[in-house]
Design a protein around this nucleic acid. Structure first.
Lengths: 201, 201
DNA sequence: TTCGATTTCCGAACACTGTTAGGAGTTTAG
DNA sequence: CTAAACTCCTAACAGTGTTCGGAAATCGAA
């Protein structure tokens, strides 16, 4: 049972998070400031430490939230699509998220690294709700259906597709952000070609 | 003719740059501090402003230097190789640089964006000494030799290859940095498969 | 209801950051 | 030799994240 106090606590925690996310998407990641967050929420700087132990904790929470948003965007792609279209649509959702939230996306992957521990054996035990995990599952679905039979493991195949998609997303979110080029069309063609290559082999 | 004064000036400018680069590669990008650079070089913080107008200018110079190092690494790949091997080797050099200087590499692309102006027409006028430019030239070489005839322009083909390579590099420099996985082998296979797909079409 | 404990929140301070103004001391050019 | 240009520093300013101590509010139980 959740007491009123707990509900209040979580609500202002969420408010802090929302303010941080909005500041990142609106003014850029380097403008994120504890004191500005506090000011916007009518708190003193020290008051925030009742809800987060440090700025680093806020950043971690912001990244975690961004990751679930990215995964949610990918999960809205209907899994009923033919595998080829499904994989392309997944990648498109990934890149679209990056294009629409360039600062947020870049910030996520600057501050999120899988910790050195927590990754023993081969690799299947990556974070559960990860953009990569969704891709892996899709590729495995294809392999079990006999459609994808490329040499390496399903993990390696998913990694290469992820790299392509992540590269397009990162470039458009950072280096090429202001380049007037029809990335959406080029991305789609590149992914279709890549996926076709995976199925042919 | 360069006066002794100019030579001195440039030498301490380079020293500042070197110190900054070393601090980034050794302690991470967020630990870069004007005052620490000054301390290491026996300057007062204000003294550095004789050589750089702001911290931002130092960062720009650091990024520019990193870019030429990356391009140099790519230019050491013998252009006499068969196109297929040449493209793969170029990508390998790119990723290897990122793997060996993860903080530096990530820092470069966080702080370097092609400015909104300076990019009028279609796109061929990107920065001259760019990792991307090297790829474009290689792809154009292949197209003129009749080996690469994929639908899109050479620019689009080079972009897709760049995205794949840049994605692998970025992932290994940030999110997957501590994952014990044989990326070198997987990367090579992925690039060979991708390039083969380009030549088949 | 009342009392004690817990939770919330803030003011003040600390150590750090990048940056600027102003003025010494040195080097250079005519 | 002199005046201009260049180097470099001290001191200060505004900003940052963080901690400490205490005041106020809230809560749980007698």
């Amino acid at each position: 049972m959740r007491t009123p106090r707990e509900r209040r606590h979580e609500r202002t925690r969420d408010a802090i998070l929302s303010a941080a996310i909005e500041m990142i998407t609106r003014e850029g990641a380097d403008k994120l400031s504890l004191r500005k967050i506090a000011q916007r929420l009518d708190y003193s700087p020290a008051g925030l430490y009742e809800y987060f132990g440090s700025k680093e904790e806020i950043i971690d929470a912001v990244c975690s939230e961004g990751n679930t948003r990215l995964v949610n965007a990918m999960k809205q792609v209907p899994a009923s699509l033919p595998l080829e279209q499904y994989l392309v649509a997944l990648g498109l959702a990934y890149v679209t998220f990056a294009r629409q939230n360039p600062d947020y996306f870049a910030f996520m992957f600057m501050n999120r690294a899988i910790p050195p521990e927590a990754m023993p054996g081969s690799a299947d035990d990556l974070p559960d709700d990860d953009g990569f995990t969704v891709l892996i599952q899709a590729v495995e679905r294809g392999q079990q259906a006999g459609l994808l039979t490329r040499s390496g493991t399903s993990l390696e195949t998913a990694y290469s597709l992820w790299a392509l998609v992540h590269g397009m997303a990162t470039l458009q979110a950072t280096y090429l952000r202001h380049v007037p080029f029809d990335f959406a069309a080029a991305d789609q063609r590149a992914m279709e070609s890549f996926v076709a290559g995976l199925m042919r082999e």
